[in-house]
Every structure is written in C-alpha cells, then in structure tokens.
C-alpha cells in the first residue's frame, strides 16, 4: 500500500525546537487527523511535507522513495495562512494554479469548472477574490488545493471558519478523495469533527507525535471506566472492591476507574447486591478528554512523552 511517511523529521528555529523526531505515516485511502495545541508543530510538519520549509533532519517519503519536487506538484495543499491573489479573478486564479502544477490549459479549465461547481462558487468565477465573503474565499482555497487532481492531500485547518453546510461539503469531499485512494491528512482543533471523519488520528505535543492510532485504539488505551446507576446503593458501596477507584458520585450514578485486569463482573455483582441497577456501562474517554490528558502533561517531562508514544 502506498504511504506518505514522515520519518524522524526535526526542525529548529534558532533556539526554539519546532519538531523533534516527528514520525508517522498516512496510508493511501485514509483520512488522517492531525491534532495538537497551538505551536505543537502541525503547520511546520505540513510545510516540510510540501517542501516549503526544509527539515534539519529526517525524511519525507511517498511510496517508499523520498519526496521530490515532482511528487510535490501532485500534492494538494491548503496552507494555514490562507492565500490567494486578492485582485485576480476566481476562475483565472484556479486555472493558473492548476497549470503551475503541470496541467494543460484545457484540463485546467475543465477542472476549474468542476470544482467551482462542486464547491458552490461557480457563480463567482468572474469575480476578484477580494470581493468574496470569507467563507466563499475558503471554498475557493479548497478548490485551489483540489483543482490539479492531487494524489496526496495536505490541509492545514481546512474546517476553520466554515459554516455547517460548508463543513458537510468539505467532509464529503475529503471522504470522496480518500475513497479514490488518496491519502488525506488534515489538522484541526474541532475534535468532534476529527473523531467523526478520521480513520486515524495523531496527537502532537511539543514537536513530537505522542499518540497515534484509530479512534478506537486511542480511546481504549489507559484505565477502563465504568458508570453504574444503582439508586439504592449507599455512598462508598464500591470502596472496598479490589482494583477499583471511585472517581465521582453524582446522585445515584457512580463513576469508577478499574485498573487493567480487574473483573468488571465482580463490580456488577457488588452493585446488584445493593438493589436494582439501572445502568452499567463501560465509558471510554472522549477524544477531547484524551487530548486534554495528553497535552497537559508538562512539556519538560521528555522521558514520559517518549514512553507514551505508540
């Protein structure tokens, strides 16, 4: 399977370490979500993939061989800092960008028509970009990333500033592209969205990948949590159970944390012993909780973050 591999990439700006041994891969046909707090190194990574920045160390490979200028012309890129010529017309601009990526004039024209139609900006082809609303400029920006029929998509914050309809359009486009076998990589702070549409997620902290896997893999890591709704149970009913820690008790609902290997059926039996049990559910951390947990670990604690790497 074709893969975009980011292998041990490092980058520093003077004394600031932007990336330290960043490694992960994006497989063909998969949507990879790239999350991390501001300044974690997402944009720097993407710029290095695009060759807009040079890495100090490490390598970016596509299909096993190092990415060249030729490969890069086949990447669709949406920079974090949106940018188009403000005084150039939408249609001409997209044709120009498609041609810079090596398309013929006719193919570029056809692609421009297709994508402006699909992204709902066909009526604005003859207008200067600066006359469009911010949301429509964003659609044109996405069209600019797609117009040359890229083999790889790298999008920096593609969803920021979009209305819900545009978010749906954008998500559908990403899914379609992935279905065509294109590896799609994007960064976002909208974790619910990332959780919904990504096949795999990578969480970055201080320039390194600290967690990387499918949503399920990420969520199933760590201690198991249980929620038990036993209305007649007395407070402290679970305190004596081995391997169980009571996290909180709100009304009749108790949240428990079980250390690995603890038998949850024993917990259920203890709960039933107190009376009826209305709810007994395993609760997995949401991506947001996971993210919060990962990014709030002190940054200077480097040995720990290495240990967390999956």
């Amino acid at each position: 399977m074709r893969r975009l591999e980011i292998d041990g990439v490092s980058k520093r700006y003077g004394d600031v370490i932007a990336l330290a041994d960043m490694s992960f891969d994006v497989r063909a046909g998969e949507i990879f979500g790239f999350v991390g707090s501001n300044g974690a190194g997402k944009t720097t990574t993407m710029r290095i993939v695009l060759g807009v920045l040079a890495a100090d160390a490490g390598q970016v490979r596509w299909d096993g061989s190092p990415v060249t200028t030729e490969t890069r012309r086949n990447i669709g890129y949406m920079p974090e800092e949106r940018g188009l010529y403000p005084r150039m017309r939408v249609g001409e601009q997209l044709v120009y960008l498609a041609r810079l990526h090596g398309m013929s004039a006719t193919a570029a024209n056809a692609a421009m028509r297709e994508w402006t139609d699909r992204l709902g900006v066909a009526a604005r082809r003859g207008d200067e970009v600066q006359k469009l609303s911010l949301g429509n400029q964003q659609r044109v920006q996405l069209a600019a990333a797609l117009v040359h029929d890229p083999a790889i998509l790298v999008l920096d914050e593609p969803f920021s500033g979009l209305d819900p309809v545009a978010v749906d359009v954008m998500s559908q486009v990403l899914r379609d592209k992935a279905a065509q076998g294109v590896p799609v990589m994007f960064s976002s702070h909208q974790l619910d969205l990332v959780e919904r549409i990504c096949d795999r997620i990578g969480i970055v902290r201080a320039g390194s990948m600290v967690a990387n896997g499918t949503v399920d893999e990420l969520r199933s890591g760590g201690d198991e949590r249980l929620v038990v709704d036993a209305p007649e149970a007395q407070p402290g009913w679970a305190d004596h159970l081995d391997g169980v820690r009571v996290v909180s008790q709100e009304g009749s609902r108790t949240s428990l944390e079980l250390t690995a290997g603890t038998d949850d059926q024993a917990v259920l039996r203890s709960a039933l012993a107190t009376g009826p049990v209305h709810e007994f559910a395993r609760q997995r951390p949401s991506l947001t909780e996971l993210f919060r947990h990962i990014v709030t670990v002190p940054v200077d604690d480097t040995t720990d973050s290495n240990g967390e790497k999956s």
């Binding site: 012309r73 920079p79 800092e81 940018g83 188009l84 403000p86």
Partner: peptide, 17 residues
C-alpha cells in the same frame, strides 16, 4: 510583497521553486 502579504506565496511555492 503582494504575494507575501496575501500569503499566496506559500501556495505558489508548493508548486514551483
């Protein structure tokens, strides 16, 4: 500077040198 201030330069440089 127009290319720089409108940030289009990053998009251009992802396609050409």
């Amino acid at each position: 500077v127009e290319e720089k201030s409108s940030r289009v330069v990053e998009l251009l440089l992802s396609a050409i040198r």
